[in-house]
Amino acid sequence: MSPPSAPPSPTLNPYVADPGWHGYIVWYFFLGGIAAGAYVMAALADLFGTAADRRAVRPAYYLAFPLVNVCGILLILDLNRPERFWHMLIQSRTGWPMFKWWSPISVGSWGLTLFGGFSLASFLGVLAEDGRFGLRRFSDLAARLRTGWTGRLFALGGSLSAFFLGSYTGVLLGATNQPIWADTTWIGALFLASAASTGVAAMILADRLVGGEVDHRALESLERLDSYAIALELILLATLALSLGELGALAFGRWPGWLVPWVVVPFGLVLPLLLRRLPGRGAAVLAALFVLAGGFVLRYAFVYLPTAFYLVPGHHG
């Protein structure tokens, strides 16, 4: 046989095996991003916004907790031994907490748990404020806790945990030896910007689906914020491509990487920015749908990127 072909770049490592982080992980990254992005915006609206803004972001608190539960289920299903999922948090031999600050999955497991706590509290809070499921008697308490210093502290803690959830997945991909993932340190920042834009898009869509109850000026704030997040995402995507140097053309020039320049950028980022300039609800809904679809394709492309570079075909973990 002829010697194995040389790797396409001095730094890219094509000799690794495929960890098989595929379907469930793509959905986890996507839904976790929406939960984190929506929650971040809601918490920031609680911190900086008006009463109308705070009303406008309530769908985020309805979305985040159910989504983070779905995320947990997806992660458990992705394990080859799902019944041992708790080994991520508890040392199976001693019963002590399991925590390795230098392992992104270990920190991520705790981060996800912490975010689950914040999103549960916020979920119960909006249920009480809206008087659903017999929680009306707690509505005053919930409203009080959402304002004042307790509310600010809670919003700060919640937004920090959501920022973490929105970005650690990208940091995790970099902390490997997989082709492309290990060749840039910008994936976490990119995923965070994408989480913000898809989170806001999900909130806008949720509002439209329930009949557009939100004050139109508050909605304009959200849409402006989404446009800002999309612009940030475009800048970070360009920075990431540049950070790869000669590998950038290789990464985004073949399947599935080409989905990024040919699908995500034109349809998931640029088109929604243009649609936002059009009047009417239809354009806003369409823009939100394109942002969400773009966010999913972005996660898909990045999760599968290394598979284009393995030297041993079918080298699955």
């Binding site: 690794v16 960890p19 098989g20 080859n80 993932w181 973990g317």
Partner: peptide
């Protein structure tokens, strides 16, 4: 008895050694 099959070790190994 401790491994839960998360496969992070597979992603990390630069030699393609570990498999499920």
């Amino acid at each position: 008895p401790v491994c839960n099959g998360c496969r992070d070790c597979i992603a990390a190994c630069p030699f393609g050694v570990i498999h499920i």
